[in-house]
Amino acid sequence: MSMFWFRRLWQSALTLFTMLTLMFFLFRMLPGDPTATVISPALYPKAQEILRMQFGLDKPLWEQYFVYVKNLSVFDFGLSFHTGRPVADEIGSRLLNTVLLVFPSLITAYALGSIVGAVVGWSRGSKTETILVFLSTALQSAPVFWLSMLSILYFSIQLDLFPIGHIVSPGKFPDETWRMYFSADFLHHLALPFLVNTLYQFCFPFLLMRSSILATVGEDYVELARMKGLSERSVLYRHAMRNSLLPLATTLPMTLGWAVAGSVVIETVFSWPGLGLLMVEAVGRSDYPVVQAAFLLIAVLTVLGTLIADFLYTLLDPRIVNE
């Protein structure tokens, strides 16, 4: 492994460590009694005392921090204040639900967006281009939760095509086994949020691809490809698009972490039991161990995504040499 990658890994680890430290203090050092955010003042003093001890909150801060880091190193995120169950269990299934909703739609959106963007950018100045650019800008400008509400109003209420929300019909899979993910019922519930999210996520790659294709149209190597007698289609796919794909391919992995975080609103509208909805609920209940763990998870995803993006870049662009 080269020096460059070693340094990048070291940087990423440092970033993550700083983040988990900051998060520890953020949730404990903000104004007011730190335990008040953690333990409901409505409880009996005796009960509060027991809870304090149970969560280790009676110890000095530095000791708490030490325990926190030690526990994290074995993936122990503590217990949820709300349910009392281990945070890791709470988050695991929720993360899966989010990933199942977000990743496929993000990948679909990027694939579609780059192809449509390339074709549309290639025929620059066409009427379709003007209309699509306007539509996708408008779509990007609309809040995604509003689009979700509209889609529910129309497709679920008006046309009665899809369920209003949730991941499966209530009571159908009482013990929430993995079997539920393979059911038609799950897909039926997934369809509408998937469509809305895909449509919304489509805009960015579409607009980016269009403008980077527009920039390649005048490139000498594109003209040379045409002079070589390649068909328009080959010129577009093998040369113009191949090169314009670079910025997109490298933003995709970085976007994955953000998309998990960004699923908050869409999950709220569709009552989709994912990580986003969990975070909102947990913040509402002051269930900070859960929020903290969710944040860490997303931080890891984003940092990993950035690393993958860097790696993809060196893989796809031979000009990049990491010393």
Binding site: L22, W258, V264, G276, M279, F295, T302
Partner: peptide, 19 residues
């Protein structure tokens, strides 16, 4: 880097819920 690694909207919500 750190700010980019934070979940944008949830982090703002946490900040708001603490003040």
């Amino acid at each position: 880097d750190i700010l980019l690694g934070l979940p944008f909207l949830p982090f703002i919500i946490v900040l708001l819920s603490l003040t």
